[in-house]
Write a protein that binds this DNA or RNA. Sequence first.
DNA 1: ATTTTAGTGTGATATATGTCACCCAATTAA
DNA 2: TTAATTGGGTGACATATATCACACTAAAAT
Lengths: 210, 210
Amino acid sequence: MLSKETLTKLFPDWEVGLYDAILNEAELKEAKAGTTLLKMGQNIKSAMLVVEGTIKLYQEDENGGEYFMYHLNPGEACAVTLVCNYHHEQSQVLAKAVTDIQYLAIPIEFMEKWLNEFKSWHYFVIKTYRSRYEELLKTINEIAFKNMDERLEFYILKYVKQFGTIVNLTHQDIAKDLNTSREVISRLLKKMEHNGWIIMNRNSFDWIKK
Amino acid sequence: MLSKETLTKLFPDWEVGLYDAILNEAELKEAKAGTTLLKMGQNIKSAMLVVEGTIKLYQEDENGGEYFMYHLNPGEACAVTLVCNYHHEQSQVLAKAVTDIQYLAIPIEFMEKWLNEFKSWHYFVIKTYRSRYEELLKTINEIAFKNMDERLEFYILKYVKQFGTIVNLTHQDIAKDLNTSREVISRLLKKMEHNGWIIMNRNSFDWIKK
DNA sequence: ATTTTAGTGTGATATATGTCACCCAATTAA
DNA sequence: TTAATTGGGTGACATATATCACACTAAAAT
């Protein structure tokens, strides 16, 4: 069950009334690792705040391509679901649970209301947009200017920062996230192994650079 | 001189006090077409609201590469300059005036203050972030999934939407914005000419597709 | 224990784009 | 008027990445 204490830890900057509003209106949901939480074009019916676990956010194209953009961690919210008007109701991103997760689902009709009622909610929304905007800028920088080897390193570093140096991903997983092919990733990882940046195992490798 | 009337037209959703605050605290500045208004890494000392003209926003990399992301028009604000805390003071984007422009410069010390004082400012900031976030998503979609011919078409369409079907850009201009080389753009435009999508002239072409 | 599947390695080749070299034509400067 | 500059066209080639084909091995399923 969700306690005010948990909320206080996750969202330390909120005002008291907002915790109550969450307790009254939000539903605490769970999802298994691997679940797709939000698809491109899907109608948004509730805002998503992460309580436990990690979510990965992707840009998705018409032909099933995906590009990984950033992680969402406990205390963070999915920006696109914080809809503050009724014009935008379609998701423009793909969201997947990477671990088992718990999240708060808040019906979007409260978004407008809470913006009026709670100053700390207002700040939270701005902070969320701002930080996600920055993540997107980094992503654009990578794709627009970097070759695949650098993008792969950047990708691995994001993983390592989240989960530690043992990278439990197959080459195919990585290839999908970077919208390239498995062979390309295999070859680049081999090169990293030669350079002494990683130690490779089946299904995983260890990032030991520096 | 800046009048309350002008402000009302540009920012119809604001509350009255906010217009007064702008009139008291903002400086109306001008810049010639081509001026760089904001560079990557530059300290942000004021928020930028467009009054007249058009600004182009770019992602910039260490080696001088640029990638065009979106336009800012009158009534719109540069999201990165709407700093609401003092941790982020470095610009992560490059902003250039494409036409002669007028803009409001608001010292960033008012950002925090106005968020507290004016509800309509708060909404304005959120709306700004939200719409820019969406632009970045589109940009990522283009770079991550599309070939240069499609990206060029998308680029031209953004121009056409802003300025009309006569595209007054050299191949070199376009190449720079898409972080590619002039020859590539020349060849793709030639192909579009063959397809009957454009009529080419020196220094410009006319987009006649459909 | 044997078969199947998933993960990986690697050569060969295709394609998109980047780079270089050079040309020509139009415009601008001298 | 002539020279210089800018914009554009195009072949040749380099490079990064995508794609195909196939082999090998560890793990999982039977």
